[in-house]
Design a protein around this nucleic acid. Structure first.
Lengths: 347, 347
DNA sequence: CTCAAAATGAGTTGCGTACCTCAAAAGACC
DNA sequence: GGTCTTTTGAGGTACGCAACTCATTTTGAG
């Protein structure tokens, strides 16, 4: 009828007795300090495992004295999505200070690999953990690895550097996101056949390229009545996106779908509206911002693929904290999901 | 360039000095203990606010000695969604024991208000917090209020009792979920006109009724080419759902959409397949289980409206813990979102 | 003004761990 | 067997707060 999940509550003292050693030795084993014979280490670890002992987090945290410091390395430009992440970090301030944690944001030009790498190197030694919106580049990779080697916990945020030895990635699978966008456009277009336009920031950005890849994959294999037009590179700028799209709409009367991969949403929407085709064209984009929220409510946008910035901010902090404490990570909890947001499930 | 979110780290001693009182008095104020003049209370609270002091969670937790006990009151039947919630609670066991928290699940017949109320009354005094999958009934409401009055923190889970004085509800807005389902069916049906079928467990269940309400609302106002057939009450049973739906499909050749509000998914899918109409009818249901996952991959189901059971389990625990500690709740974090799950964003 | 009640100060203990020192024991090496 | 190094034990202090006791001061009612 009633099942308890937490049976025992042993302490280090109990483990010491169990293993037939002193508290000091258990402490040495627990913190990988030198000066313990391998055989003794084994005995202690066995005692810990046998009793499934877990150190009391609160006691450990209290005893260590100095506060943990984390740094968030974020893009310096005016990116609304990144701004949301910072806002949500700010909302955590009470939570953070009650745990004596310090989170600092460091703005830098994440699109310049050398500048980013230099910023990362500059953090070494000062922080227990670093979350970074990273560009996938050899210099950045090396900087991340250096941090890791220095004992700093590193988490990549939003954009991954899979070839580095970062401890964790907090963000979505962008290929799957592109696939989802493709499925949505295809399904929402319905019976109609015609062309599909793609507006991206740049195909050089890893996340954009991956999204486009996934999108094309789905359209090509599952919606034979649709053909994808060459990608417009709007550089995430409103004006440029608008001009490029307006020209394209003028040339193709049979555009039935539109996928906006990155930012520049304002310009994309304007081009659609001014051509008077915002109701006929299925428009799928990314992220829930004040703007996309409005466009969804107006029916100009049909769906937004979203990664929850609040979740990403909190997950990054929690993962860094768990890594620093040596606690296991709740993978299921920290996994960022690909949200499909339509008008009626707007968060 | 770098902005710190956590400036100070005062202690109770500092607050005592600031307020010109002793540690004991600060302690009395902090824990609402009697024997402090109103004026002194004010002074202490002002000092706390002025310095935005927050007690060190770890120290408080360590000092209080006894572990906190939480109970989860769950349906006793073989409900896969509830099972998932329990599974995720089990996955937290390491996290829980490291914090010396105990979570016990109590199985009971949540559909019988008297039995449920009795179960709740029986918990009084033994637990610091209770999460309950509750039926909205006067007897249950009274039982919840009694728990609250006894100082127990109460959270309703999945299904709310808004008229009670429960401290928090962890679950989705079911009207919005129904609206989302309606929008999906309507959009995915495309240009076609025809009829839409609804299979529910029972219209007596609050969550099902709300979902149907939201669904009808959207179809009626936004998809005039679709007409909704009377609700089939399958009692969440496979066989019954299958029979009812098979009969309905036989009578109406122009069914283009299907909304399965609750369980019984196996039967619903079978009726569709055996009628050879699983590809023509847009089928939207709820929750991601092994079964719905398979149906989505096969293309039988087109979308599932989902509430993340892992998130609900963890949110309930976190909310109970925050309430017990007197910490603020991170509303954004604990809010359960309505997930639209299609084949390409299957979690 | 008196006296009891209320309010406050001062202090202690303990929670479980981290981190440190110093001494003692055990082992390794020649 | 003696010397040196490695390993281990024993113990202490500190972390910030909860919870408690007891003495002292202040307050208010009569």
């Amino acid at each position: 009828m009633a099942e308890t999940l937490t049976p025992t509550a042993l302490t280090l003292k109990d483990i010491a007795r169990e293993a037939g050693v002193s508290l000091a030795t258990v402490d040495r084993v627990l913190h990988n300090r030198p000066g313990v014979r391998p055989d003794t280490v084994r005995r202690v670890k066995e005692a810990i495992a046998r009793n499934s002992f877990q150190p009391h987090v609160a006691a450990a945290e209290l005893a260590r004295g100095r506060a943990r410091r984390f740094a968030f390395v974020m893009p310096s430009g005016p990116n609304p999505f990144m701004q949301q992440i910072e806002d949500y970090l700010g909302e955590m301030s009470g939570w953070l200070s009650a745990r004596r944690l310090s989170v600092e944001t460091v703005a830098t030009d994440v699109f310049d690999p050398l500048v980013l790498a230099a910023s990362l190197e500059g953090l070494s030694g000062d922080y227990d953990g670093v979350a970074v919106v990273a560009l996938d580049h050899p210099g950045v990779r090396a900087a991340i690895n250096d941090l890791v080697d220095a004992g700093t916990k590193v988490v990549t945020l939003v954009s991954d550097v899979p070839s580095s030895r970062r401890h964790h990635y907090v963000g979505i699978d962008n290929i799957a996101a592109g696939r989802t966008a493709g499925a949505l456009v295809g399904r929402l277009v319905g019976q109609r056949s015609g062309k599909v336009a793609i507006v991206a920031g740049s195909q050089g950005l890893r996340d954009h390229a991956e999204r486009i890849f996934g999108f094309n994959q789905v359209i090509a294999t599952e919606f034979p009545d649709l053909s994808v037009l060459p990608v417009l590179e709007g550089r995430d700028e409103d004006d440029r996106s608008e001009q490029l799209l307006a020209r394209l709409l003028g040339r193709h009367a049979d555009i039935v779908g539109l996928y906006n991969v990155g930012a520049g949403t304002q310009g994309v929407a304007k081009a659609l509206s001014e051509a008077g085709r915002d109701k006929q064209v299925v428009f799928v984009g990314h992220d829930v911002t004040a703007l996309t929220r409005r466009l969804l409510l107006q029916g100009v946008m049909d769906a937004a693929i979203s990664q929850n910035p609040g979740h990403e901010a909190r997950a990054a902090v929690r993962v860094l904290l768990a890594l620093a404490r040596g606690e296991p990570i709740l993978r299921e909890q920290e996994k960022i999901r690909i949200d499909i947001v339509m008008r009626d499930n707007l968060p």
